[in-house]
Write a protein that binds this DNA or RNA. Structure first.
Lengths: 153, 153
DNA sequence: CTCTATGCAAAGCTTTTGCACGTTA
DNA sequence: TAACGTGCAAAAGCTTTGCATAGAG
């Protein structure tokens, strides 16, 4: 679990400590294998350590974010989602508006666009945190029968 | 001010009403000319009508969102931002991590990418709401002298 | 042993909701 | 004058913070 060692080392470098709670958060992120909300992480960590506090979860996620060990995703819902960056290549997140599913897509296809942006408006996109919303293939099928876009509250 | 007429008509179609408060919100969004948070909008509307309540702002923004008259942007900050869609072509928002500035970029350059996505993973991106974060040209210059990325809280 | 991290409790912020009153069409 | 919208107040979520204690190194 190289990710955990990376975390351990980052902590050591700053004189910080590897606690069971921090290990648990990391472990849950691994086990879940997808983006999860602080609340979901809290519930899952609670299953192992019933005494853990929500604030510890938030503090740990903040730490992991600082260390770039997690990616923060805005799914359009209230709570942001946290996903283990692990050693994976940064990728684009596609969030389905209907079912909430999140797909990871390779950034290669975006390269021409990114280059263009950098050349024209000199804007450098943060590759570690791109999220787009839309409708996944499955939900397109389901939705094809009705109007799909509802304008009423 | 065609936007206001559009709003007026949408309201009429549903038997809803054009109140001074709703006009004020629309007016502020016009005047600001960029994405603004509910709080900023509240403050600006308050300058005109001191009695207006925050809840009215939220309700109005929600209404404008339903009518697709505003675009919601996640800038990475706590509050989402609202920008008048007006009659503009949907565009991509580039949020600068450093100065918070938001640039609008034409979606044309993304087209090959979007087509590719649709063909490969069958995902249809919502064009009205794409936001990416990064560093704008100005801030790149400023940052070039230091390490830029700060890992401490 | 020292200094960090945790749990607890409380507060802070943003957003939502119920309700009586005011206003629009 | 019949709905609809607003202000007010309160509540509801999510997140942060202060502090005494527990625990890692």
């Amino acid at each position: 679990m190289s990710c955990e060692n990376l975390f351990r080392e980052q902590l050591r470098q700053r004189g910080l400590r590897l606690t069971p709670q921090r290990e648990a958060v990391l472990s849950v992120l691994h086990a879940v294998g997808r983006a999860a909300s602080p609340e979901e992480i809290f519930v899952r960590v609670s299953a192992v350590d019933a005494a853990v506090d929500r604030s510890t979860i938030y503090r740990t996620l903040d730490l992991l974010d600082n260390f770039k060990l997690v990616t923060v995703i805005d799914s359009g819902e209230k709570q942001r989602l946290y996903e283990l960056s692990d050693r994976e290549i940064p990728h684009l997140h596609l969030v389905c508006r209907v079912c909430g599913k999140i797909m990871g897509v390779d950034l290669d296809v975006l390269q021409p666009f990114l280059t263009h942006l950098d050349e024209t408006v000199k804007f450098q996109i943060d590759l570690t945190n791109i999220t787009m919303q839309g409708i996944c293939g499955d939900c397109q099928k389901v939705a094809s029968g009705n109007n799909f876009i509802s304008t009423q509250s």
